[in-house]
Amino acid sequence: MNKLFTLLLILIAVSAGSCVKNADVQPDSITLNYTDLTLQAGSGKQLLASRYDATQIIWTSSDSTVASINEKGVIMALKEGTTLMTAKSKQYNVTATCTVKVTPLIVEGKDIGIGADGSVFIIGTDSTSASSGYSISKLVNNTLTKLPDCGAVRVAVDPKGMPWVVTKSHSILKYNGTTWVALPGTATDIGIGANGAVYAIGNIEVSPTGGNNIMRWNGTAWETMPDCAGTRIAVAPDGTPWVVNKSNLVYKYTGNYLWDPMYNVYAYDIGIGANGAVFVTGMKLGSNDIHVYQWNNFNYDWTDLNVLGGTNISVTPDGHAWWLDKNNILQKR
């Protein structure tokens, strides 16, 4: 009788132990903290799997060019699109998914500069000081990285990808990769061509209708350009300056004492790409909307791109216009 009772106790204990063990180590599903996500390009998010440590999961993305995910479940949004993140247990045949939609990065700024090498710099909307202006950031792969110890209101980029800026107090500074170097003179705008030619709009008014003096950098000092004035400037790949003046007319330097007017547009800013493409943001006669226009050498006129423009514009090396709209949001064409 005692032997039979003891055997029953042993069987009950084994059975109970087996049930507890199976319940502990056989999860029947994975539950993620997100099943749908919308992220801006350049941002990230952490996926977590209930009842699992991140290292117990194999994390995969159906399109890692849209958004990637690392071994810890951290998502990084890369470009516009949709991808599916899958979490799979390394030990058990259970999975869970999260749909990730990536929207374009929203960049706000006061000015934009693009170099011949494709480097992009943004003057932000966050003030750094009353005399310097706003933060300066480099835009790379949908990520903005602030440059140290400086603020500005206008920016241009040289062929080596280094920004030159004008501060709120009209100082001219050049970045050398680690520090900012002050240049002589004062300015209100700056432009750099793909060949490295640097021009600036000074802060001395020389014409009530044209605007301020125009200067050319000779490597050590600024030389005054003849017989023209402006408020905004951009430089063609061959080093020819184009300006927008106080009356919103566009002029191109001819190489001597003359400046050619480029009629039929009322411009606010001008940008020129390393391939020679010229764009302005402005209006044509009879229009009430600010649009983006491209200069057409064949008919010697401005072509309306039929997209709303803004106040500041720059051009990529391959001839695509990037501009800041009336709400200071970066737009591309």
Rank of each mutant, 00 (worst) to 15 (best):
N312R: 07
I12E: 15
L258W: 09
L139E: 08
A41Q: 12
T125R: 05
N2R: 13
H170W: 07
N141Q: 15
D189L: 11
N2Y: 08
L258R: 11
K252A: 08
S247T: 08
Q294S: 04
L183V: 01
P27D: 04
G319Q: 09
I75H: 04
G273N: 04
L37M: 07
V157E: 02
D28E: 08
Q26Y: 11
G109I: 00
L84T: 13
A182Y: 04
P159M: 03
S135D: 02
N176K: 09
Y257Q: 14
T220K: 07
F5H: 15
L144Y: 02
R232P: 12
V140Q: 00
Q26G: 07
L9E: 15
S127W: 07
I12G: 14
E80C: 14
N195P: 02
N212D: 15
D269Q: 07
P184W: 09
I201D: 10
L11F: 15
M262C: 10
I57G: 12
G185C: 04
G17D: 09
A274N: 13
L147F: 06
G193I: 01
V74L: 12
V181K: 08
T231V: 14
A221K: 13
I58N: 15
N256L: 14
Q56A: 12
S127K: 05
N22Q: 12
D304N: 00
L173C: 06
C19I: 09
T128D: 01
F5N: 13
N328C: 05
G196R: 01
F5E: 15
Y34S: 14
A236Y: 05
S50K: 13
A187F: 11
L4C: 13
S119Q: 00
F279C: 03
Q46G: 10
K326Q: 07
I272F: 08
A274S: 10
R51P: 10
I204L: 06
G196I: 06
D304L: 01
G309T: 05
I30V: 02
S62T: 12
Q46L: 10
A67W: 05
I270C: 07
V243A: 10
V66E: 09
E71Y: 14
G202I: 04
I136W: 05
S314A: 10
V278S: 10
T220A: 12
V107H: 01
G161M: 09
T303C: 07
N213W: 05
T38D: 14
Y257S: 12
N248W: 00
V100L: 04
I114D: 04
V198P: 10
A77F: 08
S61K: 14
N312T: 00
